[in-house]
Amino acid sequence: MADTAHRPSRSPMAPPRSFLWSRRIFLTLLTVFVLLPVFVMVTSSLKPLEDVTGKFQWIPSGLTIRPYFDIWETVPLADYFTNSLIVAGSATVCSVVIAVFAAYAVSRYTFRGKRVFTVTVLSTQMFPGILFLLPLFLIYVNIGNATGIALFGSRFGLILTYLTFSLPFSIWMLIGYFDSVPRDLDEAAKVDGCGPLGALFRVIVPAAIPGIVAVAVYAFMTAWGEVLFASVMTNDATRTLAVGLQGYSTQNDVYWNQIMAASLVVSLPVVAGFLLLQRYLVTGLTAGAVK
């Protein structure tokens, strides 16, 4: 109680001791739970192979950065990395642009079939991926045979697939966000001579940047982390990290230190990006999805 008494308290009443202690204990336990795998990932990636094949050790017998060099040799990790970057990057850009157009139409226009559209798009979220994995595989193979456009096994097919995964949530969140941008703003822009697209890009998009960033982060993370479709729809040349990482354990030895090092390396881009942009995600959700 002593430390809160000196500070001017923000709420009219200082929280009681029971609340402060519950908070302290709960948050400490939660922190341990959250950090345990991160701790294992970081320390194991710096251990020599003997340390990770024998009994687990809290303190490594020696530190080495060898795993961080070996990971690129054991499997073609750089190729997987490039594939993942191309696939997730393209899927994100396309998904955001398409979602912006669709959300603009729903937010600013009344038209026949609007409700059907939003309900249909949202309900695709509930489809189990396993339901359309095989049919999609059949469609991509058939399109490939008919037109010569390689969708199955290609990055392009994977980009198309992934961008639709994040599309429903993105559209839904952006509708909420665009609704919160006052209509007077785009009416004023139209009076000033902007067309419908001018109003969208000069007024609504700049006002909705936090929502758009949030949607982009979500789309990138969805594509970067997807396993099921990547494992069926890629071949040796287009393999993404999600599948490629399994390459360390199919050999006779399981190189746990390399697996941990590789996991850390492939996580860094998304985790860094996410943590930098998480403020936008919270504000984006507050204004958009959670209303």
């Binding site: 990932m41 982390g225 396993v227």
Partner: peptide, 13 residues
């Protein structure tokens, strides 16, 4: 910190 598990790619975690 609490958002780290959400941010980590599923397969790495």
């Amino acid at each position: 910190l609490f958002l780290v598990p959400y941010a980590l790619p599923v397969y790495a975690a």
